[in-house]
């Protein structure tokens, strides 16, 4: 709008066309800006202003002093991040848990899709799909409640079954190593079904004439799987795997938070839960911000890189 008076004052000759276009353009598109405005305001308040809050990571931030009143301490918070034993342990836990989740959440759906694809009875196939997709939609609060109950050492159904088989009791959520196993297995259990969707779509796109030709040549179903099905699924598996790289520091806050307890902090604590405990509960705002920023920056670089790779190699685009 500010442009208009300036344009108006210029002589009409020669300048007439751009002026007309600018005005015409504004008259046509002001409504577009207005439609975006509400969302933009929300994004600024709840996304961009918090981003500005990362200056707190260079401060010994005290809520009662505010950003302007708190002491500047340079990069001390970041030095702590790489010197404190607990934060290093937490970064390692995060990488380990998230890395294993990424691997298994790729391999298990990949394999499951191949086997599911061999089911010829459509009704049965659909029932199996309905069952395996379900856990994805339940929250970790619900599943956490269920897991605490069934994995309990005090008469939980899993330990009852182990006892019936003559096996010793397992402290699934009380022993650090078992906790990691439980976290990865239960995450795969929750997500593998949902993960197969994309592979089933890839399987549906395989040209049937390939199988017909193989059939004529006398290839067994096993050979067809090795030489036709799996190669056809590899590209989409690479895309899925690449895109999940951005999650290497996302070990699953909801899940860990709802399953862990002080007994397993050493092996089960991850960046997000650590930020919550140290940054919010203990009030180390500056330090908490620094860890959060470390995570955001690393994740952003990986996300950009993985989308670039997926775009270049497989022409994958969001919009």
């Amino acid at each position: 709008m500010e442009l208009e008076p300036a344009l108006e004052s210029k002589p009409a000759t020669g300048q007439a066309l751009p002026r007309k276009t600018a005005r015409h353009y504004l008259r046509k598109t002001w409504i577009f800006h207005l439609m975006i405005l509400p969302s933009l305001i929300f994004l600024i308040i709840f996304n961009y202003i918090p981003m500005a809050g990362i200056v707190m990571s260079f401060q010994d931030f005290k809520p009662w002093l505010g950003i302007l009143g708190s002491d500047w301490i340079g990069l001390d918070n970041y030095r702590f991040l790489f010197e404190r034993k607990d934060s290093l342990q937490v970064i390692w836990n995060t990488l380990l848990i998230a890395g294993l989740k990424i691997i298994f959440n790729l391999l298990v759906p990949f394999t499951f899709a191949i086997f599911l694809n061999e089911i010829r009875i459509l009704v049965f196939k659909r029932i199996v799909q309905t069952f395996v997709y379900l856990p994805h939609f339940l929250s970790w609060v619900i599943l956490g409640g269920i897991l605490l109950d069934i994995l309990s050492t005090d008469g939980g159904i899993v330990n009852r079954m182990l006892a019936a088989l003559g096996l010793p009791q397992v402290f699934f959520l009380g022993n650090g190593n078992w906790f990691r196993v439980t976290v990865i297995v239960s995450d795969v259990w929750k997500e593998f079904g949902f993960g197969t969707i994309v592979f089933l779509a890839a399987l549906a796109n395989i040209n049937p004439t390939l199988y017909e030709a193989a059939e004529v040549d006398g290839a067994s179903r096993f050979k067809q799987t090795i030489y036709i099905t799996i190669p056809a699924m590899i590209p989409i598996a690479i895309v899925v795997g690449t895109l999940s790289l951005g999650n290497i520091l996302n070990a699953g806050f909801d899940q860990i938070f709802n399953l862990y307890n002080p007994l397993v902090y050493e092996k089960g604590d991850i960046i997000d839960t650590f930020v919550y405990r140290v940054g919010i509960l203990s009030g180390e705002f500056g330090f908490g911000t620094a860890i959060g920023l470390f995570k955001s920056v690393v994740s952003m670089i990986l996300i950009c890189l993985s989308y670039y790779i997926a775009y270049r190699w497989a022409n994958y685009r969001i919009f």
């Binding site: 996304n47 809050g53 940054g279 959060g292």
Partner: peptide
């Protein structure tokens, strides 16, 4: 819009806001 999907200020600044 998209930038907010790939970067965020983290939990603590959000809490303070």
């Amino acid at each position: 819009f998209v930038f907010t999907m790939i970067f965020n200020g983290g939990l603590v600044p959000f809490y303070v806001v």
